[in-house]
C-alpha cells in the first residue's frame, strides 16, 4: 500500500533524507527507530505533505496514487493520518466542533454521506470509549491547556475518527508516563486491522513492548541502515545506537 523509492529530502538546501526505500503492505506495523537527528520526524512529515520539506528525488506510491502529487488535505482524505509529536493548539475552537468538522469534511471528500448530529454523536462516543478519554476534553479548546497525555490521547481519538489506511505516530511516546503509553498502545492495537497499516516512529523501544511491530527499521544519517523484526528493537534497547552508527560509518553511509 505504501512504496517509498529512493526518497531524498532537503530542508533549506540541507539534505536530511538521503535515499529511503520502504515497502509497507496492508495490515503491517513498521517501527522506525534511530538516534536523534537521523531524519525520523522528517519522514513522517514528508508523508503527510508538509511543504517545509523539499523532495529532491524519488517517489512515493500510496494505495495506487502518486502521493507526492497530493496536497496535505488530499493525503488525509486518501487515508494518511499523522499523530503529531507536538499537537497544535487552536484557541476558541472546541475539540468536539473540530472532530465533527473533520469527520464530515473527510466523509464528503471520500464520497460518503455526512453524519447527522445523532449519528455523529453515536460515532464519536464509540471512538471516545476506544481511547478512554474524559468527555470534559471535548468541550475545551482544541489542545489548549491539555497535558501531554491528554494531547496524545486526543491524537488517538482523531485517528480513530478518521479511520485512516496508514497511521503514522511521530514519537507519540515522548513525554508520556507508563499509563498514558499503555492507552496509546491500546488504541493502536484496537485499530489494527488487515487493511490498516502503521508507522511507529520512536526513539525508545518501550512503546514496542505494547505495540508489537512486524518490522523494525533503523534510520541513521538519512538512510535505513538496518531492518529486522521486533528483536532488533530489543537489541537496540540493550546495546544503544552506537554499534549501529559504527557499522554504518564503517561502510560509509
Amino acid at each position: 500500500m505504501l512504496s517509498i523509492k529512493d526518497l531524498k529530502v532537503s530542508v533549506e538546501d540541507k539534505e536530511i533524507l538521503k535515499g529511503i526505500n520502504l515497502d509497507i503492505k496492508p495490515g503491517e506495523i513498521h517501527a522506525i527507530m534511530g538516534p536523534n537527528g537521523s531524519g525520523k520526524s522528517t519522514l513522517s512529515h514528508v508523508l503527510a505533505g508538509n511543504d517545509n520539506y523539499e523532495v529532491t528525488s524519488g517517489s512515493i506510491q500510496f494505495d495506487g496514487q502518486d502521493l507526492l502529487e497530493l496536497e496535505v488535505d488530499e493525503r488525509a482524505v486518501a487515508g494518511i493520518f499523522l499523530a503529531f509529536q507536538y499537537p497544535i493548539e487552536i484557541p476558541g475552537v472546541s475539540n468536539s466542533n473540530f472532530l465533527k468538522s473533520m469527520v464530515n469534511s473527510v466523509r464528503v471528500s471520500r464520497g460518503l454521506e455526512e453524519l447527522n448530529a445523532m449519528e455523529m454523536l453515536k460515532f464519536l462516543k464509540e471512538k471516545i470509549k476506544l481511547v478512554e478519554m474524559d468527555n470534559s476534553l471535548l468541550k475545551r479548546s482544541l489542545n489548549e491547556g491539555f497535558s501531554g497525555g491528554e494531547k496524545k490521547r486526543n491524537e488517538m481519538l482523531q485517528m480513530a475518527a478518521l479511520e485512516p489506511k496508514l497511521g503514522i505516530l511521530d514519537e507519540t511516546d515522548s513525554g508520556l508516563d507508563i499509563d498514558a503509553l499503555k492507552i496509546v498502545a491500546n488504541a493502536v492495537n484496537k485499530l489494527r486491522s488487515e487493511e490498516r497499516s502503521f508507522i511507529i516512529v520512536t526513539h525508545y523501544q518501550r512503546l514496542l513492548d505494547y505495540i508489537v511491530p512486524d518490522y523494525v527499521h533503523v534510520l541513521y544519517n538519512g538512510k535505513i541502515v538496518k531492518s529486522g523484526d521486533k528483536s532488533l528493537a530489543l537489541e537496540l534497547e540493550a546495546r544503544g545506537y552506537d554499534w549501529i552508527k559504527e557499522e554504518a560509518d564503517a561502510v560509509g553511509v
Binding site: A48, G49, N50, E71, V72, D73, R75, A76, V77, F81, L82, F84, P87, I88, I90, P91, G92, V93, F98, S101, M102, S105, V106, S109, S141, L142, Q158, L162
Partner: peptide
C-alpha cells in the same frame, strides 16, 4: 497544516482558526 492534515480544506481551516480567534 494541522487542520489540513485532518482533511479540512485550506479555506475551511482558515475559517475554523479565525472563528476560534
Amino acid at each position: 497544516y494541522y487542520c489540513k492534515q485532518r482533511g479540512l480544506s485550506e479555506e475551511d481551516s482558515i475559517n475554523m482558526i479565525v472563528n476560534g480567534y
